[in-house]
Amino acid sequence: MSQTIELTSVIPEDMHGMRLDQALSELFSDYSRNRLKGWILEGLVTVNGNVASVPREKVNANDSIVINATIDSEDHFIPEEIPLNIVYEDDDLLVINKPAGLSVHPGAGRRTGTLLNGLLYRYPESINLPRAGIVHRLDMDTSGLMVIAKTIRAVHKLVKAISRHDVVREYEAVVIGHMTAGGEVDEPIGRHQTNRIMMSVVPEGYGKEAVTHYRVMEKFRAHSRLRLRLETGRTHQIRVHMSYIKHPLVGDPLYGGKRARFIPNASAEFTRYVNTFPRQALHAIKLEFKHPFTGEELSFEAPVPDDMIELVEVLREDTKEHPDDIVWGF
């Protein structure tokens, strides 16, 4: 089964002079760059009413972009009865609190047991939506809030709002190292040169703009609890940026959070607990956006899950026992 979609946008000032395929990947980030490039080559993209067929074509500020394309539905995925913790729902969208361990979308070697399979079961009509209405993602082992579209018009509006950075996404995390103050990481992110499942900070011009703001909520002797806000939403962004500044997330298997560390005077039990924490300590705690059709300001918060609460309690107790043995970074 397939469906015809129309995507529209206007090139903002900061994309003036950018390649068309690059601009489209920024404006319509819910679709892969290869798919967008294919639509250009098929003549399905117009710029100011003229068919654009060259991906390298340069765009100008205020150019009007329209894509009319056909996409396959999700009918090749199996609907499954998977519990969904629904925080909010109306006719156009829903907000869920995703548990750690639930993959958002099927991938290589995983066709079942994902959020998408659960959406297809609960909302059979979502078979006609791209990715069953999923407009942004959380990593499998990251918990917290996600907004999901229930209609094609909501897909278009929410994707556009996310690409314009109009959706506020805040996270809570526990990182390795004692941090004294918050800050900002403004470093582009691209695919890792040697490990294709990882992302990394890359030289300017080789990746996508990525900005993460963070502040310290609580200091422990060898760890810190942070509140983070995404200005952009790149794959693994928080995990990559925190590792880049030498404060990887506790439990992160890809970016250094599971690497064995020496912590002065720590008990064997404490060291084992921290070094074997079963996932990256990251939770999408807050989500704010304007309803795409009513204009109502929506704001949601999801309680920190039990495993991260227990982690923080363990770190507090260790800090009380060893207040002077500060460990600053990775």
Rank of each mutant, 00 (worst) to 15 (best):
R239K: 12
K246D: 10
N265L: 14
V216K: 02
T212L: 10
V274E: 01
G233W: 06
H213V: 08
Y244C: 13
E218I: 10
S267Y: 08
L230I: 07
E269A: 15
R227V: 13
R225K: 15
S200Q: 13
S243Q: 08
I245F: 04
H247W: 02
E209T: 13
G251D: 01
Q237G: 07
H247R: 13
I238D: 13
G257I: 07
R239G: 02
G256Q: 11
H241N: 06
Y206F: 08
A222W: 04
F262T: 12
H236E: 14
V201R: 05
I238L: 09
R225C: 01
A266N: 04
R272E: 12
V274Q: 00
K219T: 13
R239F: 06
A222F: 14
G257K: 03
Y255M: 01
T235N: 07
I245C: 08
A222L: 10
S267I: 12
M198E: 03
A210M: 09
I238S: 14
E269Q: 11
A268F: 04
S243D: 11
T212C: 04
R227I: 11
Y244S: 04
Y244M: 02
T232V: 07
F270S: 06
G256I: 03
V240F: 06
V211A: 00
A266T: 02
I238H: 05
V201F: 05
G233L: 11
Y255W: 12
M198V: 14
A266W: 06
V201T: 01
R261Y: 12
K219V: 10
S224Y: 04
A210K: 04
F270N: 05
S200C: 10
M198A: 15
R272C: 04
P248T: 05
E209H: 12
P203K: 04
E204Q: 14
S224A: 05
F270T: 02
I263F: 12
A210F: 05
L254W: 00
S224W: 09
V211L: 13
Y244I: 02
R234V: 09
R234N: 15
Y214N: 06
